[in-house]
């Protein structure tokens, strides 16, 4: 297991290199530059700026210079946020995005699986149909629609929660986290229901029932683990998506997370900031997927590696 994990971790390096390369050249292909403004700068200043940030070198030179920086874990200075390095910006924004994303996914996992199991155990009943109906709604309504509705109801009319902003207090976290979690809850509930129903029809569940075990033991001990496997494989991409993809949510609720830097960086051609965020998220997504694979293997003995025979 350990040997295999190490091999897989090393295998992440070429993926990252490819990601870095593509992102690097892609943002350079985009028209405009970091110091373009409404009023064009005098040519001398422009030249000085380019020289300071090595933008006067050939693209290939810049690429290898950047590669060298990244290896030493330095993403360089931001072009737009003067006096800030990209590392500092990430260090500032990431904890917020992480808090929102991680809480949302944990919430989605527990609530989603619970609802899914509840629906599966009452298959084709009113409970089942209404749960799955709501789930379908949750999946199909985009979060930029859900968010304003929630703000309107809970913040503006009821006045229970702040409509936006971030102060690390629980009330300011509730709406963004719930908004982010809702579609995932709906999706997880649907996968859980489907796989639980399938598992409950399998022969080994019949064997467990024939042993005279109570239904709750049959479900907890025999059905839960296989029923959760599809959820686990969904979780990898979902976690990454929720930590990185909360750009819309961060915008709507004015949260100072990493997502807003990402968007700002891309719009301003802030090359170093965009590259820094891309690489940071790249690493995060790859590592999270790797962890989910480990979890999956731990849950499913059939695909465990390096078996001692």
């Amino acid at each position: 297991m350990a040997k295999h994990s190490l091999r897989r971790l090393l295998g992440l390096i070429p993926t990252l290199l490819l990601l870095l390369t593509v992102a690097f050249f892609l943002i350079r292909v985009a028209p405009g530059g970091p110091f373009d403004a409404e009023k064009a700068l005098p040519p001398e200043i422009q030249a000085n700026l380019n020289a300071k940030y090595h933008l006067d070198e050939s693209l290939l030179q810049q690429y290898f210079r950047y590669l060298g920086q990244v290896v030493s874990l330095d993403f360089g200075p931001s072009y737009q946020y003067k006096d800030w390095t990209v590392n500092e910006l990430i260090a500032q924004g990431f904890p917020v995005s992480l808090t929102v994303g991680l809480t949302a996914i944990v919430l989605a996992f527990f609530v989603g699986t619970m609802l899914g199991i509840a629906a599966a155990l009452r298959q084709n009943s009113t409970v089942d149909y209404s749960l799955m109906g709501f789930a379908m709604l949750g999946i199909s309504i985009p979060n930029f629609v859900i968010a304003p509705i929630l703000i309107l109801l809970l913040a503006v009319y009821a006045g229970w929660l702040p409509a936006g902003g971030w102060d690390w207090g629980v009330p300011s976290m509730v709406l963004p986290i719930v908004t982010l979690a809702l579609p995932a809850i709906a999706y997880i509930a649907r996968i859980t229901r489907g796989s639980m129903i399938e598992v409950l029809h399998s022969n080994f569940i019949r064997t467990a029932r024939a042993k005279g075990l109570s239904e709750s033991i049959v479900i907890r001990r025999h059905a839960l683990r296989p029923a959760l496997l599809p959820v686990i494989s969904y979780l990898g991409p979902a976690i990454a998506g929720m930590i990185s993809g909360s750009v819309v949510i961060e915008r709507i609720f004015s949260i100072p997370g990493l997502g807003s830097y990402f968007v700002q960086g891309a719009l301003n051609r802030d090359y170093t900031l965009v590259m820094g965020v891309v690489i940071f998220y790249g690493v995060l997504i790859l590592v999270l997927n790797f962890l989910v694979d480990l979890l999956y293997a731990w849950l499913n003995p059939k695909i465990r590696y390096d078996q001692k025979r």
């Binding site: 022969n203 024939a210 025999h222 296989p226 499913n300």
Partner: peptide
């Protein structure tokens, strides 16, 4: 049960 390939729980 008749089907030995599927009658045992593969996860335990």
């Amino acid at each position: 049960f008749q089907d030995p390939m599927t009658s045992l729980n593969p996860y335990l």
